[in-house]
Design a protein around this nucleic acid. Structure first.
Lengths: 343, 343
DNA sequence: ACGGATATCCAAAGCGCTTTGGGAGGAATC
DNA sequence: GATTCCTCCCAAAGCGCTTTGGATATCCGT
C-alpha cells in the first residue's frame, strides 16, 4: 500500500539520493526532475517514514513541553485552548509532543532531562514569571526553545511570542477614562505571572497620564476562574467608593464579574462599564454575553498555532520567522462600555 | 556521552543480539548474562534509541488522541487533570503523544488518518456518548484502542476503563435518603455524555427503591463550570418546593452551587445537604470548602495514568491488564450532609 | 581543442536497533 | 559412542531514510 523511497525511486528511474534531494529542496537537482518527483509523490501518496528520518537525521521531529502541575496552577480552560492551537499545527507537520507534567520545583530537572533525552528538538515555555530563571537555564541547554510570553527583568535576547499586554490594557483604560471614568478596578490573573504585571502596568500608565491613581483596594489577583471574578467584583462593589468601571484579564473572570454586577442590580454599560481581555475561547464569546462585552482581543489558539509554526520552522530550517513577536491586541468596543454615570 | 547498543555489547564482550535479547526479556539468554547486561546498563546509563527501535520494529511508541474542539465541549479543568495523569505515565515509558484536535464532525476522518499514519500504536477515546459510533469505527480500524468511560447500548466487547458512576450516585442518593431527604436535586454534566446518564440512573434507582421519584424540574445538565453550578442551584432554590439535598457531578459545579446556597442564606449540611463527585482536582479540594464536602471520589489523574499504563503495556505486550475495568468511587462523608430539615 | 567549472545524478555507507538463521557445546537419549 | 536436543550465543541482514564522495556529461573561456 504505502510506497517507500526505494520504490518511488525505482518507479521514477532515479536513485534514492536524487529523489530524497528533490523532496528536501536541495539545489543539485534539475527543476524538471524535481517536478517529476513531486508529481509522483502526489500520485503515489508517498509519505516519508518518520522513524527512518529520525534515525538518519538524528532529529526527533517532536517538541517538548513541560506541563505545570501543582495546586493553584491547575490547567484551566486557557491551557486547553492554547494546546489545541499548538497541536493542530503540529499534527499538520507530523510532529509529536512530549508532554512532561512536572511540579514547579522539579521543572529544572525535567527540562534538563527532556533536552538530554534527544526526544525533542525544541522546547516550549510558558507561564512566564518576572525574572524567570528558566530562561537562563534553557539558554544553557543548547536546545532551541520558544517562550510564550516574556519575562521581566531578564535580558531580552531570547525568542518569544507575546501579546502587547501593556498596550492592550493601556488602550482599554484610556477608553474608559475618555468616557469619564475615574475609579477603575482591575480583576487580574495571578500576580506572579508577567501578563498580569504588564496589564496592570498598562492600566496604571493610562491612569497616570490622566492624573488619576490606581486604588490598591480596586485590584485583585487570582486564578482565572469565574468564581474568582465573581468574588473580586463583589468585593469591589462593597467598597465605600465602588468603581464605575472594571478591567478583567479574561472573559472567564468577566463571567463572574458580570454575575456579581447583575446581582447588585447594576446595569452593565450604564452603571458600570467593563472591558475584558478576550482569548477567543469558543465557549465564551463576548458577543454572547447578555450585554455584549467590550474586549481586547487576541486569539490564544492562534498563538499556539503560531508558536508551533515557528518552532517547527526552526527545526526544519524552513521559512524565516522573526525571533521575537509582539502581537497587538485589538480593542473591540461593544455594549459593556459607556459614559461614566453622573453622581 | 551516551552509549549505544554496539558499545555496550563490546564493553560486555557480547554480541548486540544477546544484549538486545537480554534487555527485551527473551528467554534464550542465560540468567547470569542477563544480570551482567542489566548491571552494565545501570552503570553506563544506556538508553535505547527510540528512533532506531521505531524503525526496526515498526512500532511508533506513541499513542494518539483526538482532542475534541468545539464550542460547548471546550476542554475544561477536568481535561487538563486527566491529561496530566496520562502524560506523566507516558513520559516514564518514553512514549510520545500525537494530539489531534478535531471538530466532532471530522472525528471519524481524523481517527482514520491517525490510525493509517503509522504514527501511533494505539488510540485513546473519551467523552463517550450513548450509542457512540466511534467504538464500532475503532474496532474496524485494526489498531488497539482504549476507552475512558463506556458507551451505552453498544455491545460491551471493547476495552475500557470507567468508574462505576451508577453505583457512585446510587450510594450518594441512598445516603441522603437514609438521612431523611425526599426531594433531591441533580446538577449533572452534559446530558449526552454517558457518565451523566449513568449518574442520573444511579440516583433514580436509589429513589425508586425507596418509593421516591425524581422531579424533572430538579435535574439540570450543563458544562461543568461553577457558573453553571451556580445557575442550576439558583433555579432549584426558586422552585416552589426546593430540594433539601443536591447531587453535583463535579466539585466545580459544587463550587457554584455552594455559592448559590450561601447567597440564599441557607446552611449547607443543615438546611440543605450536598454531595459532589470529586475528581481529585488539586485546585479544588472538597475538604477545603467552607463546609467540607461529602463526596464520591475517584481520581481523574489516576485514571489517566492507568489508561496510559494499560495502553503502553498492551503495545509492549508487557504485563497482563484486564480488558475492562470499573472503578468503584469511594463515598466519603464530610460535613455537607446532614439529616433532612424538619418542615 | 583542452583543462576546469558547473550541473546533475548515483552507489554505498551509515543511523542504532531488532530479528532471522544458524552454530558450538554440553546434556540427554538410545 | 553416535545421535538428537537443548541452551546460549553470534553474524549479518534488514528497517527507510540522509548524506558523503564520487562519476558523468555539458559548457565555458581561451
Amino acid at each position: 500500500m504505502a510506497v517507500n523511497l526505494k520504490q518511488l525511486a525505482e518507479l521514477l528511474g532515479l536513485s534514492q539520493t536524487t529523489v530524497s534531494r528533490a523532496l528536501n529542496g536541495y539545489p543539485e537537482v534539475n527543476a524538471e526532475t524535481r517536478q517529476r518527483v513531486l508529481q509522483a509523490v502526489r500520485e503515489t501518496g508517498y509519505r516519508p517514514n518518520r522513524a527512518a528520518q529520525r534515525l538518519a537525521t538524528g532529529r526527533a521531529f517532536s517538541i517538548g513541553m513541560v506541563m505545570p502541575i501543582a495546586p493553584g496552577i491547575d490547567s484551566d480552560v486557557h491551557f486547553g485552548e492554547f494546546l489545541a492551537g499548538l497541536a493542530e499545527e503540529a499534527v499538520k507537520h507530523d510532529f509529536h509532543f512530549v508532554l512532561n507534567p512536572s511540579a514547579p520545583e522539579d521543572e529544572e530537572v525535567t527540562f534538563r532531562r527532556l533536552a538530554a533525552s534527544g526526544n525533542v528538538d525544541a522546547l516550549f515555555l510558558a507561564y512566564m514569571r518576572a525574572n524567570d530563571p528558566r530562561i537562563a537555564m534553557l539558554k544553557s541547554l543548547s536546545i532551541p526553545f520558544l517562550v510564550h510570553g516574556r519575562s521581566i527583568g531578564e535580558s531580552r535576547d531570547y525568542p518569544f511570542l507575546d501579546i502587547d499586554n501593556t498596550s492592550a490594557f493601556y488602550d482599554a483604560a484610556r477608553l474608559l477614562i475618555q468616557l469619564g471614568h475615574q475609579r477603575i478596578a482591575l480583576i487580574n490573573g495571578p500576580e506572579y505571572l508577567t501578563f498580569s504585571i504588564r496589564r496592570q502596568k498598562g492600566m496604571l500608565r493610562a491612569l497616570t497620564e490622566h492624573g488619576l491613581t490606581l486604588d490598591e483596594a480596586l485590584v485583585e489577583h487570582s486564578l482565572m476562574t469565574d468564581e474568582h471574578g465573581y468574588r473580586s467584583m463583589q468585593r469591589f462593589l462593597q467598597h465605600a467608593q465602588p468603581p464605575t468601571a472594571v478591567l478583567c484579564s479574561s472573559t472567564v473572570l468577566a463571567l463572574g464579574a458580570v454575575r456579581a454586577i447583575n446581582q447588585a442590580g447594576l446595569k452593565i454599560g450604564e452603571d458600570i462599564s467593563l472591558i475584558a481581555h478576550d482569548d477567543v475561547l469558543p465557549m465564551l464569546k463576548p458577543e454572547n454575553f447578555s450585554v455584549p462585552l467590550t474586549t481586547t482581543r487576541s486569539s490564544l489558539r492562534a498563538a499556539g498555532a503560531r508558536i508551533a509554526t515557528r518552532l517547527i520552522g526552526g527545526i526544519l530550517k524552513r521559512g524565516d520567522y522573526p525571533e521575537q513577536e509582539l502581537w497587538r491586541a485589538e480593542l473591540i468596543v461593544r455594549a459593556s462600555t459607556g459614559p461614566a454615570p453622573q453622581k
